[in-house]
Design a protein around this nucleic acid. Structure first.
Length: 154
DNA sequence: GCCAACGTTGGC
DNA sequence: GCCAACGTTGGC
């Protein structure tokens, strides 16, 4: 089983929004970064667990846990000229962008803020992509050890 | 609101 | 294929 971290701006889509979805499930559309796409398309598997991370807010941090419930399939929002994430270069016959479905599992009892994770950047979380300078990936892999440590901070 | 970091685009 | 310009991300 794999472990991931997925970022979302709570003003756009928060952990509470996910919980309020029908079947507590959403499709993770709008990813327009090749590295993130490749991980979704090639590596994410049904049953993988996801740290739900709130970015661009105060404080940014890990707020909950979700689960991959459907593996990658074409992101239809790329075909829609009216969509914010429209990409004319993605063709339904040769889709460029993909998404997965994720389901709400739980909220952490407290947000684990980024600054707290950073305190372990030389220790248990050494090399964790989120903590790398300039990191802008909205989806990143998490090792089992990193997962256990972060969830253990709750 | 600022700005560093980084990805993408497009002219050449 | 290089690289300057531009756009975006996201912490602060």
């Amino acid at each position: 089983m794999g472990y991931w971290l997925m970022k979302s701006e709570p003003s756009e889509f928060s952990i509470d929004d996910l919980r309020n979805e029908a079947r507590r499930t959403t499709h993770w559309d709008g990813i327009r970064n090749y590295q993130a796409r490749n991980m979704m398309r090639d590596e994410m598997q049904k049953g993988d667990l996801v740290l739900f991370y709130h970015s661009n807010c105060d404080p940014p941090g890990v707020v909950g846990i979700a689960e991959v419930v459907r593996e990658a399939y074409p992101d239809h929002t790329a075909f829609d000229p009216d969509d914010k994430h429209y990409d004319p270069k993605s063709d339904p016959d040769a889709p460029r962008w993909f998404m997965v479905d994720v389901r709400y599992r739980k909220k952490l009892r407290r947000c684990i803020p980024l600054h707290e994770l950073k305190a372990h950047s030389q220790g248990k979380l050494q090399g964790f992509p989120l903590l790398r300078k300039g990191n802008r990936l909205s989806i990143m892999p998490v090792t089992k050890a990193q997962w256990d440590f972060i969830v253990g901070l709750e």
